[in-house]
Simulated assay, not measured.
Amino acid sequence: MILLISDLHLQEERPDITRAFLDLLDGRARQAQALYILGDFFEAWIGDDAMTPFQLSICQALRTLANSGTAIYLMHGNRDFLIGQAFCRAAGCTLLADPSVVELDGEPVLLMHGDTLCTRDVGYMKLRRYLRNPLSLWLLRHLPLTLRQKLARKLRSESQTQTRMKNTEIVDVTPEEVPRVMAEHGVRTLVHGHTHRPALHKLLVDGQPARRIVLGDWDRRGWALQVDDQGMQLAPFEFT
């Protein structure tokens, strides 16, 4: 069994989500061959050197799972793209490039966070290119902690405001971009998060049947894609 999740947005202000995640680690994830976390794992991340006690506790929980034999793969999201190798080493997980092709259920599957599919959101795409530039990343990681905290609050506030103001089509994936990216990577299945719109979409890629599986965000309930002998099942579960 393999599990895929995304968009937990872990933060101290949402202990219900944290409990649900820890329950998953102690339950289904212990039986899994691998756990894939496809971005926005944390609500915010300003550097491995600035881990809070809360974030450290999550790191330790991941390490416990890794030590039990479950492989953990972590992909950057738009909220936590400053997660680095120091965190991954401590947590016992592997940082996964976005995009990546892995074999699931006997076929190559494209994994993405999903934000790069939203090409109609021109303002965001421009900001993303700037922030993900290697020089920008180096500068961000070397800013004083207080400045990083201030910048993170500012970006988070602006992101929330702009998302509310933007047309819903703009913050969703660009329909034409999906088959283009899938054809580029030679896959018939794409799994991503980011849009907070869990669903299974059927489409054609180079004239062949294909599918796009969108992982749900953890807010009122959790979401996980389970891959096992029965295939791929995307299902929600209630917080306890």
Rank of each mutant, 00 (worst) to 15 (best):
A20I: 07
I17T: 15
A66K: 01
L38E: 04
R63M: 12
S57C: 03
A66M: 02
F41S: 12
Q33A: 13
L10T: 05
D7I: 04
R30A: 13
N67L: 15
F54Q: 02
L56Y: 02
F41D: 05
R14S: 12
R63H: 12
A20L: 09
D49E: 14
F54S: 01
P15L: 04
D23S: 13
D49L: 06
P15K: 04
D23N: 13
G39D: 10
R63T: 01
A29I: 09
G39W: 04
E13C: 01
R19Q: 14
L10S: 05
R14Q: 14
F54L: 02
A50G: 00
Q55F: 03
T64Y: 00
A44E: 14
L22K: 11
E43Y: 10
A66I: 01
A44I: 13
Q55L: 07
Q60W: 08
I5R: 03
Q55S: 07
T64P: 00
F21Q: 03
C59Q: 12
A66R: 08
L4Y: 06
R30L: 15
Q31W: 00
Y36R: 06
F54V: 01
H9Q: 10
L10V: 07
G27V: 06
R14G: 02
A29S: 09
Q60P: 00
R14E: 12
I46E: 09
Q60T: 12
D49G: 09
R19A: 15
D23F: 00
L22E: 13
L4C: 12
S68Y: 14
Q11I: 03
W45M: 12
L4A: 14
S68H: 15
S68W: 14
I46Q: 08
Q11F: 00
R19L: 14
Y36C: 08
L4G: 04
Q55W: 04
D16A: 14
A66G: 13
L65N: 08
A34F: 11
T64S: 12
G69A: 08
I17F: 09
A61C: 07
A61H: 12
L10D: 03
D49I: 04
Q60N: 15
N67F: 00
G27A: 07
L24V: 11
I58E: 02
A44H: 10
Q11M: 11
S68L: 09
M51C: 13
G27R: 06
T64L: 12
M51D: 07
Q33I: 00
L10R: 06
G39S: 08
A32L: 06
R14L: 05
L35T: 05
I46Y: 09
F21S: 02
L25M: 11
G27I: 05
Q11H: 12
G69F: 07
A61R: 15
L56F: 02
D26Q: 14
S68Q: 14
L22Y: 08
D23Y: 01
S68V: 03
L56N: 06
S68A: 15
F21W: 13
Q33N: 10
R19Y: 03
Q33P: 00
Q33S: 13
